[in-house]
Write a protein that binds this DNA or RNA. Structure first.
Lengths: 243, 243
DNA sequence: CGGTAAATTGACTGCTCTCAATTTACGTGG
DNA sequence: CCACGTAAATTGAGAGCAGTCAATTTACCG
């Protein structure tokens, strides 16, 4: 477990304009999928759309921006500090996920630091807007429950599949997991940095690197371009099933 | 990681009678703390109170009893299966916790197997009762959100404090965690079985046993009676802070 | 093309796992 | 209350896995 230097993440997000939820192309999987178009007509606090470059922080642990973020495109990691001062990634979230829901409870702050892994398009929804909408549309509360439950399921799966067994199996399971959620065609995924992999499976950077390098040599991973790799799902599955 | 044989847990729970929520002595921390007394006057489906002996299953992964359980006394472990077929404990829950909330979402089954670690007193609340109460009292939905968020916080903490670092530190953190939640006086805790500890920290039974035995020799743990031990919080803290 | 950060590799140490053997604890029946 | 049987806990020995420290190599950005 290496001691990661706490770097300050840049926050030079580009404001893309006021969000137009009623015409959102992916509203079916978003936070407001249940609400009628009329719900978006008048708010006190506006919903804004941003594009964050890779490596920027949407929010920081302990802070309270008073807003949740709904991810439209890209990948976000949630970081927690270990007792030793290292950072551990406790979740990876992509399009359709809503993060920072914890601040809907009064007098709380963000539980994690949320950092983008690539270019991310996300809407910032003030907590006050959520609260007023919830008063008007009880179904929103139901939907929020569903999303929290989804986070919980992911957290439990994280413990069981990425926190158990030898490092090689954990990496293989991580790659298979990313393959499932990948938007790339034909078994392609954006390979994470070794430091991020290490912070996910709870191992050192060197261990993560050795395992990935070995998988490349065995042609379980083949470089396509940049960080895009095509991977052998059957071969990876064989690793998780070993013994 | 040892291959645990799937034993069938006994389910010989004793029915203690119809629950009387309006006179519940610990209602302030229970599921229905927000509701007025009048809410409990008439339900289609009854709320029952049970006493489960140690080692019995409240519910099983994949099953759907259509009820949540509110724990009044005792300790419950939530088990998940790893890809290797072993079992991993993903949460420990005591008085005031409500488990099985996932079945409130339509057409789902329990995500874990819930097994009692000692004698447990719990109320069984049918999902239908929850749903009708929620329609009547919007605050219940709020409160359910709060409880789910609490589960999520515990899961994240689990990953970070019990899934990271060398085994000795994990055990020390586990003991400190149990000490916090302990109802025993003066640093006393009910020590878990080595198998359970191993399933929590993700190590073999032998490793857990060696660490605990060593802690006893170093007088960080002193037997009081049965599985009740008094532990040296400062000494344990020193272990988590090592290096 | 240089400069920096990331990835890889090597060497070595220490931790954890597995397999096996005891030892201890506990509930049951005599 | 004691003997017995079973399950849990402990301990030992050896192999393999993972961590650390340090050196290179590679990738990427002006």
């Amino acid at each position: 477990m290496e001691q990661q230097h706490k770097r300050s993440y840049c926050v030079d997000a580009a404001w893309t304009g006021r969000a137009d939820c009623s015409h959102c192309t992916i509203r079916h999987l978003m936070l407001f999928s249940d609400l009628p178009d009329s719900a978006f007509d008048h708010h006190l606090s506006p919903i804004d759309n941003f594009i964050f470059p890779a490596g920027s922080a949407l929010f920081t642990e302990g802070q309270d921006d008073g807003a949740v973020f709904s991810i439209r495109r890209g990948l976000v990691k949630l970081l927690s500090l270990t007792p030793d001062g290292d950072q551990r990634i406790v979740r990876l979230l992509g399009a359709g996920a809503t993060i920072g829901l914890e601040i809907l409870e009064a007098d709380t702050s963000y539980r994690h630091t949320a950092v983008t892994l690539n270019q991310v398009n996300a809407c910032r929804i003030p907590a006050s807007t959520m609260n007023s909408l919830r008063a008007e549309y009880p179904r929103l509360c139901q939907h929020t429950l569903k999303m929290l439950q989804n986070h919980l399921d992911r957290a439990d799966q994280w413990i069981v599949t990425l926190g158990t067994g030898p490092a090689r199996k954990r990496v293989a399971r991580l790659l298979l997991l990313m393959l499932q959620n990948s938007t790339e065609p034909a078994g392609g995924i954006e390979l994470l940095g070794r430091g991020d992999m290490a912070a996910i499976i709870g191992a050192s950077v060197e261990t993560a690197s050795r395992i990935v390098a070995d998988m490349k040599r065995r042609h379980l991973l083949e470089k396509v371009s940049g960080s895009l790799y095509r991977c052998d799902a059957a071969g990876l599955q064989a690793i998780t099933d070993e013994e």
